[in-house]
Design a protein around this nucleic acid. Structure first.
Lengths: 168, 168
DNA sequence: CTTGGAATGTCAACAAGGCTGACATAAAAT
DNA sequence: ATTTTATGTCAGCCTTGTTGACATTCCAAG
């Protein structure tokens, strides 16, 4: 453990065994269910699904974002996203404004109602993550984020980093 | 860990700010797409989906497991799982043997063909995780797993731990 | 032993949310 | 003027969740 990086003995690479990797895989699977469980409950009660949550989350993060930008973040087809956006707009959670510079673009914003739902969802999700973070401490959290970032596709990492910069 | 709870200095808890938590949430979202991307490609080519992968994975981990046990691990309805199992059995990837003690139960096993697909899928998934692990080092990996475990529902953590024990 | 309930698994039908393909519109770019 | 881009829509398909109805098997209480 102590000589992890330097010694280059074969013990150093024990964390790369198939067994360790499999545990990481199963941990991802089970943890992701926990990660989505609380929002899923809230959404189900209101007749929405995970797809609506994702749209709401990223519109909240980048108010005024275009449909096209949202598409590349979410990695779905426009038809699929459009179905979700249509219901959110009809229900008055999202507002779609025609672009001023480029009138082909639609800029998306959360309404007050949309912000309320966003807040309810993200509060629930943050509560669970806060409990986990607090339980394991800051060093573990750093490792957690490092592994996740290394596991992303480069395209997705681009979006992730762009959002981080915007948020700070 | 030692001073996280006790010292109560405000610097100590900076990793619990809403901003840090939001980053963790987005990291989970983007990383999970990477996590499933490679298996999804392989499965798509063969006419299967993520549900088939999950079934195959856990049957491989616990050969002879019952449908009921698989249900509680996967957290879906028996009807949903049954559809997936039926296609896997029809295609000769999974074998279902009637229980000897209790003839209501079906015990599930991977056939040679099923094991071949399992191996292909888990190799692809392990390769990505290995690359990520190697990139960040063993300490980060420990933190990664600690956070994930803390984020699981207790029910899911039970399954996770039970699988760990069986594997070691 | 029989019978009723519990456990297990199967079949049918429906909904959410992915997907592709085709097409319309408006605006920008060439 | 023509082409390209951004967006929206319709139709139809697939996977994978759901509930409801039902068959089989086991077990336990009468």
């Amino acid at each position: 453990m102590a000589d992890a990086a330097g010694s280059a003995g074969n013990e150093t690479l024990l964390f790369l065994t198939d067994d360790q990797l499999r545990k990481g895989i199963e941990a991802m699977f089970f943890a992701y269910r926990g990660f989505t469980a609380d929002p899923d409950r809230i959404l189900g009660d209101k007749g929405y699904g995970r797809a609506h949550h994702r749209a709401i989350h990223f519109i909240n993060r980048s108010p005024g974002t275009t449909v096209n930008n949202l598409l590349s973040i979410l990695g779905v087809t426009k038809q699929s996203l459009n179905r979700v956006l249509r219901t959110l707009i009809e229900d008055g959670l999202v507002e779609s404004r025609v672009g001023t510079r480029d009138k082909r673009e639609r800029h998306l914003f959360l309404t007050a109602t949309g912000q309320a739902l966003e807040s309810e969802l993200s509060t629930a999700q943050r509560n669970r993550m806060r409990a986990a973070f607090r339980q394991v401490g800051p060093d573990a959290v750093v490792g957690f984020r490092q592994v996740l970032e290394a596991m992303m596709d480069t395209e997705m990492r681009r979006h992730y980093v762009r959002l981080r910069e915007a948020g700070e």
